[in-house]
């Protein structure tokens, strides 16, 4: 851990103006990711701005019938929010699939979007990593890459984005509202996270110094037919090997609208609109689900230890679509019902 200075911001303006762009300054929210990275000497900020007290702590309705999630609302409070549970159960379920109750009580919505990869080599400064130090090389390509990407990776980096919440947000086509010193921007979720390409050290479209203020959810929450399936090495407190968020609308047993987002397989939550479009209008049946899964995974590429993810993802997509289709009135979610009834 390095030496750093620390201030607490009370207004958004203060937070933005304290910020010296570049590597020197970081916002700190729940700290559940940033502090770990600082301890591992991966993040070495000179200055921390505590944003926990900013007025971004509520969940409110938007004018167009959607929901606006404050960036500093805790993951747990978001998942248990009545509006989220009734209108966006997919989001609630994805959040509850992540981390542990203690972590969700600390972690914020903004921080969740910006959490960094869990690639072992990224966390271990004794090993080369392009994401940590551009140009060093990637240790995962020839190393233990069981948790790594099968889609959209590059030779420079095969890391995955570890978030569960973001997979649901990708399926729901959320928007990320960010503030810079000068202006506010609204970034569509599909453009928020990026693929590694030859600049794996950049995770997202957020510019240095910008602050996430809100996440906006469009009106359609797909609350009748949805599913979030998370496959992992233990039943809680592990990152996804593969996860699938499905949002579905049916009409006469046919797919009217569908979104399929994958987690644990790429540098960002993975969508393939081509596959989704092909599925639209088709009967909501396994054969068509399988076809969609095949299209999504057409370009998938495995490495020494993660080739299994391709077949696992295929089966998980089919399962998630079928379960979304068959969904009966769901019960309210909490971590107990989640572990009892929603685990595989």
């Amino acid at each position: 851990m390095n030496r750093f200075t620390f201030t607490s911001a009370h207004t958004i303006d203060e937070a933005l103006h304290e910020n010296i762009p570049g590597n020197g300054t970081r916002f700190i929210a729940g700290g559940t990711n940033l502090i770990d990275l600082m301890r591992a000497d991966v993040e070495r900020p000179d200055h921390l701005i505590d944003i926990r007290h900013l007025d971004l702590q509520t969940i409110t309705d938007t004018e167009d019938g959607g929901l606006r999630l404050g960036a500093l609302v805790k993951n747990a409070d978001t998942a248990y929010d009545e509006k989220v549970q009734s209108r966006y159960p997919l989001l609630a379920k994805a959040i509850l699939a992540g981390a542990s109750p203690q972590l969700r009580n600390m972690a914020t919505n903004g921080g969740n979007l910006l959490q960094r990869t869990r690639c072992y080599y990224f966390y271990d400064t004794a090993t080369p990593c392009n994401k940590r130090v551009p140009g060093q090389g990637c240790s995962a390509v020839g190393g233990y890459n069981r948790m790594h990407a099968i889609l959209g990776a590059s030779d420079h980096c095969i890391a995955t984005h570890p978030s569960d919440m973001c997979v649901a947000l990708a399926a729901l086509e959320a928007r990320v509202v960010v503030m810079g010193k000068e202006s506010k921007r609204v970034i569509p979720f599909s453009e928020f996270h990026r693929l590694p390409g030859d600049q794996p050290h950049i995770d997202s479209a957020l510019l240095p110094g910008e602050l996430i203020t809100h996440i906006e959810l469009p009106a359609n929450g797909f609350s009748s037919h949805y599913q979030y399936i998370k496959l992992r090495d233990r039943r809680s407190y592990a990152f996804a090997l593969v996860s699938v968020a499905v949002a579905l609308t049916l009409e006469d047993n046919a797919v009217k609208d569908v979104r399929i987002a994958l987690g644990g397989v790429a540098h960002k939550p993975w969508r393939n609109t081509e596959a989704e479009n092909i599925l639209k209008g088709k009967a909501a049946e396994e054969l068509n689900f399988r076809n969609a899964a095949d299209i999504i995974l057409q370009e998938a590429k495995g490495y020494t230890y993660n080739t299994f993810k391709i077949e696992l993802a295929r089966r998980a997509i089919v399962r998630a679509l079928a379960e979304a289709r068959d969904l009966q009135a769901p019960e309210p979610l909490n971590c107990y019902t989640y572990n009892r009834h929603h685990q595989l």
């Binding site: 072992y120 080599y121 271990d124 004794a126 090993t127 240790s139 020839g142 190393g143 233990y144």
Partner: peptide, 8 residues
Amino acid sequence: DHQFGRFI
């Protein structure tokens, strides 16, 4: 990890 001889 045998690239580094290190538990990773």
